[in-house]
Amino acid sequence: MNSYSGYIRQPHYYETDQMSIIHHSNYIRWFEEARVDILNFLQLPYQAIEEAGLIVPVLEVSCQYKNMIRYGDTVRIDVFVEKYTGTRLDFRYEIRNDAEELMTIGTSKHCFLTKDTQRLVHLKKAAPDFHQIFMTYFQEHANNN
């Protein structure tokens, strides 16, 4: 399976603060955009996951701002699967500018629940095809993180 090449993003003007710096609240949205993008790359779009009767709530999110990102910059958000257990899925995000400088790092932690009962499920039993995709990608790229 190929490696994910990252999510390219140009900040919008409305995402800036009075100093033309990207407001801190937008980074969590950017993480979500990148997470949706990598799931699409894995051919596991949220729509398919939800159609299978599953939801993937956010349990925790963190963000560390290393350098300022401004309107007019282009950034790449690299997304790494940090942990996959079948019930949990943890991501790490690295935002880099065109000069490859690390601008921001973050994480998000998720679990898999049934849509109807909101009970924790193990993908190996509930959606074996999804489990295999996540497991294969995680194992193939675990050493690259």
Rank of each mutant, 00 (worst) to 15 (best):
R70W: 01
F91I: 05
F91M: 04
I77M: 04
E33Q: 11
D17H: 05
E60Y: 11
F91H: 03
W30T: 10
I8L: 11
F112I: 10
Y137G: 05
F41M: 08
I49M: 03
M1F: 02
K83S: 09
A99Q: 14
H23K: 10
L89K: 02
S20A: 13
D17L: 13
F134W: 14
G72N: 02
T117D: 07
A48Q: 11
L39M: 12
S108A: 15
Y14H: 14
M1R: 02
T104R: 10
K83Q: 12
D73K: 11
K125P: 04
I21H: 12
Y84E: 10
R92G: 03
R119H: 12
T87I: 15
K109Q: 15
K115E: 07
G86K: 13
E33W: 09
I22T: 07
A99S: 10
T114P: 09
M68Q: 11
Y27A: 05
D90Y: 09
E94W: 00
H141D: 05
P11N: 01
W30A: 01
C111P: 01
N26P: 03
E32S: 11
D73Y: 13
V61T: 13
T104K: 08
T107P: 12
M68H: 03
D98P: 03
Y65I: 07
K109V: 09
I95K: 07
T104N: 11
T114C: 14
I95G: 13
A48H: 08
E100M: 09
C63E: 06
E32P: 08
Y7A: 07
T136R: 14
E32C: 09
K109Y: 13
I133V: 15
D98L: 06
E94D: 08
